[in-house]
Amino acid sequence: MTISRRGFLGTGAELTAASLLAAAPAAHAGTADAFRFLSIGDWGRDGAHHQRNVAQAMADRAAADSPRFILSLGDNFYESGVKSVNDPQWKTSFEDVYDQASLQRPWKVILGNHDYRGNVPAQIEYSKRSKRWQLPARYYTHTETLPGGGEAEIFFLDSSPFIRKYVGTVTDISGQDPHAQRAWLDDALGRSAARWKIVVGHHPLYTALGGPGHDQPDLIAALEPVLRRHGVKLYINGHDHSMQYVEMGGVSYVTNGVGSEIYDPGTPSRAGFCLGAHGFLTTSVTREAIAFAFIDMDGKTRFAKSISA
């Protein structure tokens, strides 16, 4: 596996055979036909808002499935990121909450808008202190070999600099160049020979709820043409504190911002899925399909789906 770095300083369930593979608690754990990872977004609240309950559910799932890594979708620390690598939140919101043995594996991290209210370089620097915290740059890639051959490449974005409303606010994106990041993504996707290309960002492009406050027009304009041009099938994000799935233009958009505080999203305006429930996402990747499932803090599967190659 390799890492490349850039940018440093509808409700209901669709349970197919492939999605049941992702959803089953232990039946397929340890098999060699897939690689798995967990995702959690919008979580760092000193254990409050059921953060500890979600952590335990994640630990139970990780013990069964042995995911290769855990993906953190940004807004890692509320309300205003961390002040330094010695900030007490590293213990109270991360180390002492996700302390189970099964969660002592790599955490591949991206930044959220609340992280931009604090010391972003400190979150990057903490990668040198921690055995599991991995944030090598503001945006980067990671490649995994698929059982049976081929690769899946994940492209980790820094989405806050694309959002124009943050300019001149406490979410300090000054000095960041979204045009350079977009060019990097376009080039990296174009050069990738991976069978699966997965893009991850903190903010959504499209949501099942749709409309202002949920969809992000700035990201749609900047990134959607790039995703579609290069055959990206899956985009995973946090930011909206709900579980959501919608397919737009052949891309599956999955919102997973339910690591701690949530809200009741109501009825989706698009065909898809949305739910206000604390939890996380599990993803299983084979040569033939990507299967993902929302798991709540009680360990129940709330929605599952598979994407074919």
Rank of each mutant, 00 (worst) to 15 (best):
Q89H: 09
A277V: 06
H142V: 10
T141H: 08
F8E: 15
L281V: 07
F280M: 06
E79A: 12
A26E: 12
K165W: 07
T31V: 01
I163F: 07
D65T: 07
R270L: 07
E247M: 11
A289Q: 10
F37P: 02
R45T: 13
K108P: 00
N237G: 00
A277L: 05
R105W: 13
G279C: 01
S308N: 11
R270S: 04
V109A: 03
N53M: 03
I70C: 07
A293T: 07
F155K: 10
A208T: 07
S4Y: 10
R229L: 09
K91D: 14
A193P: 00
F273M: 02
I262R: 03
P178D: 06
V97S: 01
R138I: 04
A55W: 05
L21Q: 05
L21A: 05
V82N: 04
H202V: 08
S72C: 12
L146W: 11
E224T: 09
S39N: 04
S130H: 06
P225Q: 07
H28Y: 15
A222Q: 07
I110Y: 04
R68P: 00
T255W: 05
R68N: 02
D46R: 12
V258P: 01
E79H: 14
I220D: 05
S174H: 06
Q100C: 01
S160V: 10
F294L: 03
G257C: 08
K300S: 12
K165R: 15
H278N: 15
A34P: 00
R228L: 00
P136H: 14
N113I: 11
P217N: 08
P178I: 08
N76L: 11
L73K: 03
T171Q: 10
A18M: 08
F94I: 04
D33F: 12
I110S: 03
H202D: 14
G238Y: 06
V82P: 02
R287S: 06
